[in-house]
Structures are given as structure tokens and as C-alpha cells.
């Protein structure tokens, strides 16, 4: 009998509902980990060049489409590549890494086309920002032109997970979390760990830090800055592509504009964490994810504004971000 459903269970009237809080925390961590991976690439580029790469969201989108193509699935009828598919069909994990690699290469190309010429001319940094916006416009519309505006999905359950969700609560009071989101969370932690190790423990990382500190001095010290910049863009694009694929696996690729929301919210994430600060990007991602998850259900229509309200507040109160140092002079 369902008649009892009309009476609210006692714990819901008691004010504080701990399972609800736990649910919100888990939801926030899972979406926050996507923001974090996304923002890592953003912030890496900022840390060495002092430039926000607006094409990052488009590379994220491309990565998801590359993976789709590499799994050998067919495209729809609305684009130039109407009803075509690659002759190969790679296993999903391989396709994901392949897609991320391709996204990394595109990111290198973006650097070559939109950033390097301007840097060589010693142009105003604002122009680089604008130029990267131009690249974003090209990439997004190229996707639409080639494969149409429809959404695409990977084969169901690409990671071969045994259950669609895991219950962190009890049977009568379930606190379910989708398994794919746990995968994303784990991947985010692994990436953060690897990246922190790479930056702090390797020669390359040290060189990167030197470049981030001061490009010209680093060059004088004999660091091959050009190669380092290319490498940074590759890593940034790789991470974006990986994030795109993961989100695509969790939620399907929702069209060429797929990455735009992440691109815009990502700005909030990196400013919150501190522009150019790698751990800050991760922290910012989780904070914004949690803030969104804790929006009460009756105000859910304002959820989309949370990241932007935070961005605005942080500019007001602490423009250097949570983990940033006070001097941020770059554009």
C-alpha cells in the first residue's frame, strides 16, 4: 500500500536531514570532480602564459567527439560527414585515451595558430584572449558543420561497471551515487596526484615552475620555453579531451555546444582557486560542485547562476582566489 506516502516520515520534519546532507556532499563531489579536471587544463595554460584559453571548452567537446569516432560509431545525417564511421572500432578505454591524445594535439595546434604568432609579436595579452575566443568559435561550428547539432552517445556502460549506481545509504533511505561518477571522481584524484608529482618531482616540472614564474628569465636560464609551452598545451588539451569523454560517458555528448557551459563555469572555478594555481583549480572545482549540490530543491532554477555568483563574490572579496598569492598581474 502506498497510502502512507502522504504522511512525511518523522526524520524529514526534524529539520536537519543527515542523509540528505550526505547525498548532497556525494553529488557535489561527483560533479565537482568534472569541474576540477576541466579547470586543471585552463589553469595550467594560465600559469605559464598568463592567458585564459577560451578554446579550452571547445577542445573538451572535440575530445568527446574524437572518442565517439574512434569507437567506430556512425555519425548522423545532418553534417558533412553524414552517416559515416571510421573503419576501426577501438575498445572504449583505448578510444578514450586516443581521443584525449587527439584533443591534446588540437590544443597544440591552437597554440600554434592563436597564441604563438601573437606572442612573437609581443602583442597585448587581451588580443590572445580574443584570438582564443575566435578559435573556439571555429571549432564549435566546425563540429556542427561536420557532424550536425544532434547528440551522440557512447555504447551503453562503456566502463563495464556491474551496477549503474552504488547505494551509500540504507535500503529504506537510499543514498545512491551513479557508478560512472565514482569512476570520474577516481580519475580526477589520480590525475591530480600525477600532475602534482610531475610538477614538483621532475626536472620538467621544475622548468615549468620557472617558466610560470618568469618566462624571459627562464629562457635566459637555458630552458627551452617553446617546447615547454607546447607540452603544456598538449597536457591541457589531453585533460580537456579526457574530461569531455568522461562527461560524455556519464551524460552523452549533447551537441557542439557541449563544452560551453563548462568553459564558462570553469572561469568561476579557476578564479575561486586562484588563477594559475593547480591545486586551487581542484579545490575550486569541488567547492563549486558542492555549492551547486547544496542549492535547496525549491531554488534549483538558480543553480546555474551559482558558479557565476561565486566568481563575482570572489572578485569582490579575494581576487587572488583561495590559494592564490596576492600578486597576479598577468592578463
Amino acid at each position: 500500500m502506498r497510502g502512507g506516502a502522504l504522511v512525511a516520515p518523522p526524520d524529514r520534519q526534524a529539520g536537519v536531514d543527515f542523509s540528505q546532507i550526505l547525498q548532497n556532499i556525494l553529488n557535489g563531489l561527483s560533479i565537482g570532480s568534472v569541474y576540477a579536471i576541466f579547470a586543471l587544463g585552463y589553469t595550467l595554460v594560465f600559469s605559464i602564459l598568463g592567458i585564459i584559453n577560451f578554446a579550452h571548452g571547445a577542445v573538451f567537446t572535440l575530445g568527446a567527439y574524437f572518442t565517439y569516432a574512434l569507437t567506430g560509431q556512425r555519425f548522423g545525417f545532418n553534417g558533412l560527414l553524414s552517416n559515416t564511421a571510421l573503419p576501426v572500432a577501438l575498445p572504449f578505454i583505448v578510444a578514450m585515451l586516443g581521443g584525449a591524445t587527439l584533443a591534446g594535439l588540437v590544443s597544440v595546434l591552437v597554440e600554434r595558430v592563436a597564441f604563438r604568432p601573437l606572442r612573437q609579436r609581443n602583442a597585448d595579452r587581451l588580443l590572445s584572449v580574443v584570438s582564443s575566443l575566435g578559435v573556439a568559435v571555429i571549432l564549435v561550428n566546425l563540429i556542427q558543420y561536420l557532424v550536425g547539432a544532434e547528440s551522440y552517445s557512447y555504447p551503453s556502460n562503456p566502463f563495464g561497471l556491474s551496477k549503474p549506481a552504488i547505494n551509500f545509504g540504507s535500503v529504506e533511505r537510499p543514498i545512491p551515487v551513479r557508478s560512472i561518477q565514482i569512476v570520474i571522481f577516481a580519475v580526477a584524484l589520480v590525475i591530480l596526484l600525477l600532475l602534482t608529482l610531475a610538477i614538483n618531482r621532475t626536472m620538467l616540472g621544475k622548468a615549468l615552475q620557472a617558466v610560470a614564474e618568469d618566462l624571459t628569465t627562464a629562457r635566459l636560464l637555458g630552458i627551452n620555453t617553446k617546447r615547454l609551452i607546447v607540452l603544456t598545451f598538449f597536457v591541457s588539451g589531453f585533460l580537456a579531451g579526457l574530461a569531455g569523454t568522461l562527461v560524455g560517458a556519464s551524460q552523452s555528448i549533447t551537441g557542439p555546444y557541449f563544452g560551453i557551459t563548462f568553459g564558462l563555469k570553469g572561469l568561476g572555478v579557476i578564479v575561486l582557486g586562484g588563477l594559475g594555481n593547480v591545486s586551487g583549480a581542484v579545490l575550486g572545482g569541488f567547492v563549486i560542485g558542492l555549492a551547486e549540490a547544496f542549492v535547496p530543491p525549491q531554488f534549483v532554477q538558480y543553480k546555474e547562476a551559482v558558479a557565476f555568483a561565486i566568481l563575482f563574490l570572489i572578485l569582490l572579496i579575494r581576487p587572488q582566489g583561495l590559494l592564490g598569492r596576492t600578486q597576479v598581474q598577468k592578463v
Binding site: 553529488n27 562527461v247 556519464s250 551547486e292
Partner: peptide, 17 residues
């Protein structure tokens, strides 16, 4: 209580839970 989302959303965890 009615839940809303946007057509551009991809994550519906909050609404679904």
C-alpha cells in the same frame, strides 16, 4: 515539489535525487 532544469544541462543528479 516541482523540479526544473535547463535544456543545456547535462548533470541531473541534484534533480534526480
Amino acid at each position: 515539489p516541482v523540479q526544473t532544469f535547463q535544456t543545456t544541462d547535462t548533470d541531473f543528479t541534484t534533480q534526480a535525487t
